[in-house]
Nucleic acid binder design. Structure first.
Lengths: 127, 127
DNA sequence: CGGCATCCAAGGTGATACTG
DNA sequence: CAGTATCACCTTGGATGCCG
């Protein structure tokens, strides 16, 4: 008997919960793909944790990994269809975070200053 | 310097993240108020955890506690305005959980037989 | 009924060093 | 650049028992 959920929210949290999974997914949703880029966007996470979470998300089928097999190494991650289905959740989290920051006078210390917080279309990041 | 967030999602997760906080909030959003009722809806959580999370949510201003000071004891919890502002997040989590359960053939073992989180007081859940 | 305190085990997590 | 490996800590969380 694997696990018993008593509410859909329990199931959701079990899969996308944790301190970093939603953040990773949110970044990927916004078009950040490369491993190094993810690291730069998340200064608070350790290498080990990032890799660990990425592997978990991969195993859960939310994220796919693509190794370009080049030198120097180049690997990028992208949301699968299943991962993309989380868009409403991630967007809601993002929006609420913005509002909460304003209400509590909390500042967000963006690691990057310029673009790439909300690419609307394609993926100019990699490629 | 309290904490540095590098993304609104980090902030959001820091406050409503964890295995149980979203579940508690979701139940409260649906009209479950009494402590004992929450426990029945969440068979997987221990007393300690439930109280601990409720206290945290209270401290964060998302939930308010009301002690009726009667015998036998009666205490109920309800979302504050700030807590209610999480509705989109909670709804998105719930919806995604339902879809994920279907896609992965996972069954939800509702602690209550009839409808989803209906309050005893007859407050319409507003579906 | 609602809640708190204590003990104790598990594993999440960071620092550091190394590799192809 | 993109990882992997190891060590040691330290929080998280379950179980139990008691109280107003």
């Amino acid at each position: 008997m694997p696990k018993q959920y008593h509410c859909p929210v329990e199931l959701a949290v079990d899969i996308i919960g944790g301190a970093w999974r939603p953040v990773i997914l949110a970044h990927l949703k916004e078009g950040v793909h490369r491993y190094g880029e993810l690291r730069r966007r998340m200064p608070g996470i350790s290498e080990k944790m990032l890799i660990q979470r990425l592997r978990e998300l991969e195993a859960e089928g939310l994220v796919a990994r693509h190794d370009h097999k080049t030198v120097p190494p180049r690997v990028d991650y992208h949301l699968t269809d299943e991962g993309a289905s989380l868009a409403p959740v991630l967007q809601a989290l993002y929006d609420w975070g913005v509002g909460r920051a304003e209400r509590t006078k909390t500042t967000i210390d963006w690691p990057v200053t310029d673009r790439r917080t909300a690419p609307k279309e394609g993926t100019p990041v990699a490629e």
